[in-house]
Simulated assay, not measured.
Amino acid sequence: MHRNVTPTGVPAGTDHPLEVRPVTSKRDLKRFITLPRQIYAGLEGFVAPFDIEQSSLLHPKRAAIFQHADIQYFLAWRGGKAVGRIAAIMDSVAIQHWQGPIGQFGALDCLPEQAVVDSLLNAAEKWLRARGATTMRGPYTLSCNGETGIMVEGQLAPPTLAMPWHPKGLGDCLERAGFTKTKDLLSYRLDLTPDLQERFKTPGQIKMGEGRFRDITTRPMVKKEIVTQAETLRQLYNDAWSQKDNFIPLQSHEMAALMKQISPLLKPEHYVQIDRKGEPLAMALVLPNLHDITGDLNGDPSPLGWVKFGYRMMRHRFTSARVTLLGVSHKVRGTMLGALLPSLAIMELIKRADRMPYKWVELGWIQEDDSGMRNLAESLVPKAHKCHRVYEKPLD
């Protein structure tokens, strides 16, 4: 289905005035959370996420980020109908880590109509300025540890967990509004073909537990130890990503909330932790793609839909997954071992492929200037199939 638009790209029937208002009621909060599946319905490539999933990301009583961030939601209205949304975010953890009053925006969703985009950005900018922000960066939902960037390529690719979807042209609207690109985040589709293990070779065919690497071992996820392992994962993630642009340290309460959401999806083979003499040095986490079992249920399933969802979850009816949180400790960064660890982690996951039902996995996202990770991904997949872009604007 394609929307009826004017030659300038503006949807037909937009003669009513625009108004942007802060979200202050429970009714508008629900509208804010569910808005993408309403405004994007029928657009080619869009698959509606579950309302309950979006609520865990956005509801002030459920999203862990509200414990350390001041956030205001805005809705754009036209003719009594909500046509866009945005969040303005002042995150105390981000401000401390970035060492400056950098405000963020996120949950930006609307059709690529410049007037709507400008109105939403202006509302968020005014709110951030009033709280001392000198820079506006995003979009994030609601943190760079969550859904990040505007999708600028890959709208027709299959959706994956925690990767935002936007219509083509929305990024162009941000650039016309004065925002400039800070970083592209790339994702690669890796088909799990029978010959993959043979095709993917670690340098020198290094094997963990042998020779110079006899002290290098792997550790799977153990359900009984998931709380302890989650904290180890958080610390290793913060260590591994500390030098990356736009990084914000993941807080313990955020990890606890994340594990509560994803633990029903996880199996021991989904997690690789590489240790040296018992000390964690690298990790990789595979998340089953929730869209595989929810894509045909819309965002708000019927009672029968919930029965189907429960059955599919119980039977683990997933056909794809996303490799995320792949990182290496700073203790070995810049060494030969540090350079090898991502390959060893991916090789370990490939070895486990016969225990996982997935036909393909997504490697992402990877920052465009991370040559090591890009070389690793592109040794398996020549070209990225998705690109998400982060923007920034000075508030002088």
Rank of each mutant, 00 (worst) to 15 (best):
K308L: 13
K386E: 06
Y271W: 10
R312H: 08
D296Q: 11
R276Q: 13
C387Q: 14
E279R: 12
D292C: 03
L340P: 09
K308I: 13
G334M: 00
L290E: 01
W306Y: 15
R315L: 15
K308Q: 14
T319K: 15
Q273C: 14
R352F: 01
D370I: 03
K331M: 06
G305D: 06
M336S: 13
A345T: 05
D300P: 00
A345C: 15
P288I: 01
D292M: 01
Q367V: 13
L290P: 02
G334Q: 01
I274H: 09
L266R: 03
L340I: 09
K267W: 00
R317I: 13
L285V: 12
R374F: 05
Y271R: 02
E348D: 13
R333S: 15
L341R: 04
S371L: 14
D354V: 03
L376K: 05
G278C: 06
K359N: 15
M336Y: 09
W306A: 07
A384L: 07
F318M: 05
G310W: 04
K331F: 02
R322L: 09
S329F: 05
R352E: 02
K267M: 08
K351D: 11
L265K: 04
L363W: 01
K308E: 12
T335A: 09
L287S: 04
L285I: 10
L304P: 00
L287I: 14
F309W: 13
P288A: 02
F309R: 11
L265R: 04
E269F: 11
P342A: 10
A321P: 08
V323S: 04
N298Q: 12
P280N: 10
L325M: 15
V286C: 14
G334T: 00
R352K: 11
H330Q: 15
P303I: 08
A339S: 15
S320P: 12
Q367D: 12
R315S: 14
Y311N: 04
M313E: 05
K277W: 00
V323E: 00
L344T: 06
S320Y: 08
A377C: 14
E269T: 12
V332E: 02
W360A: 15
G299F: 05
L265G: 06
L326Q: 00
L363D: 01
L297D: 07
